[in-house]
Computed example of a mutant assay.
Amino acid sequence: MPNLTRPGVSKLALLAVFAFLAACDQPRSGPGKEDIFEGSVMRQGNAFIVSVTPRVSQVTKATPALGFSHALRSASLLGADSIRSGDVVTLSVYENVTEGLLAGTETPGAILEELQVDSEGYIFVPYAGRIRAAGQTPDALRRLLTRQLDEQTPDPQVIVRRVSGDGTTVSVLGAVTTQGVYPIERPTRTLTAMLASAGGVNVRPEIAQVRVTRGSQQDTVWLQDLFDHPQLDIALRGGDRILVEADQRSFTALGATGRTERVTFESRTVSGIEALASVGGLDPSRADPTGVFVFRDEPPEIANALLGRNDLIGDQRFVYVLDLTAPTGMFEARDFAIRDKDTVYVTEASAIGWSRTIATLTGTLATATTARRVLLDD
């Protein structure tokens, strides 16, 4: 058997060094459990690391509080026949004389079509002058015109019809079947009725939100709450803007999960268990069930309540720890609420790192053996 020369020994030593370096710097999908704990304020980091308990779940549980303000809820229903600026009315005037003021010689009646109520609320009628129409019902306007024309022609008979105009319309936008501008009429004087007139929403009701803008006032409500709480089915006003959209909240799942992705909320509340299930659960070949973490910035009121303090100011970094192997771990994960912009991270089991190291060493040793054989052959 031939002896290795000094150059050959040097080459093998170099290969061994490369193998050691490779074993010490294995690629990972993210920080390990110990790395995260090193980020605690108790060590060298700036995050509060808290194990999830029933108390923690209760303090951190927060669902967006949506609803209409008193200003929107207190508005009464519009009179379906009230005339407003922008509306269009038609008048029919019948006179009891052969040759009337408005009617021709062949008919006792005259029809004045499409008289638009101006921005100040008035219309102009021949021989009656400028008449205040806004705020009146068609019948009240009829009586007023009758009195005005009675001074010009004996016993006039007046009929007033209101046509819905741009003074009593709302715009419906977003996730509805038919977006557009809709008049406020007797059947569509409330929010739910107007949404039905637009063909209904085309997103799942569980995540649908309805925003109403009236002047400078803007409020949002969950669609489902409109049906669960009838007092939220507000009366509409001309110029209201209605926007229907899906819930925009989301969280990000990383690490040893079935999928790594940004996930939008599929219901009003999402628990830790539901968040994991939505990305395929834990990866059975990589995940450490004792190392499920939720990263979040907490407002000072929640941070102080959690830690029993009152000196924290501004948002604070928190890392919540879920141990699914604990006796109540699954219950804690079920009761812990995920919030908007959370990061759910699952660490890899420590054995995974060793497996990679062994695989690297095995591969490197195989390479070294091959190289040795080549050197011996030389």
Rank of each mutant, 00 (worst) to 15 (best):
T369C: 08
D87T: 01
A366L: 11
I207T: 08
Q224S: 13
T360K: 02
R55S: 14
V163E: 05
V163S: 13
E245L: 00
S92P: 07
V374C: 00
L12S: 05
L77S: 15
I83C: 08
T362Q: 09
I313S: 07
R356E: 14
R296F: 14
D342Y: 07
A75T: 05
V52H: 04
E151C: 08
P126E: 09
G308M: 10
I83N: 01
G280S: 08
R142I: 00
G104M: 13
L195W: 03
V181T: 14
N202V: 15
D247C: 12
I207H: 01
R43I: 12
G291Y: 05
I234M: 10
E245M: 00
D219F: 12
F293P: 01
T188E: 07
I242W: 03
F68A: 04
F295V: 04
G281H: 03
C24V: 14
G238N: 09
V52L: 11
G281T: 02
D35R: 04
A349Q: 11
Q152P: 00
G215I: 10
A351H: 03
P31Y: 08
Q157F: 11
Q44G: 13
G86K: 02
R268P: 06
G280M: 12
Y320V: 04
F48G: 01
S271C: 06
A351G: 13
Y122S: 11
K341E: 15
G239F: 10
D342K: 02
R241D: 13
Y182Q: 01
S197R: 11
E106P: 04
V93M: 14
G167S: 11
S76Y: 06
D118Q: 04
H229R: 15
Y127E: 02
S57D: 05
V321P: 07
T264S: 10
L149K: 00
Q58P: 05
G199P: 11
A349T: 06
F124D: 07
P327Q: 05
G104H: 02
S10K: 11
V125S: 11
Q136V: 03
I83Q: 02
L101A: 15
L66V: 06
D81V: 02
G67D: 05
R214V: 15
V97S: 12
L66S: 04
G280K: 03
E151M: 12
P183G: 10
D139E: 15
N3K: 13
L361S: 03
A80V: 03
V176Q: 03
P183D: 07
T357C: 08
D340C: 08
I302V: 14
Y320L: 13
P156I: 08
L191D: 02
R214Q: 08
I338P: 05
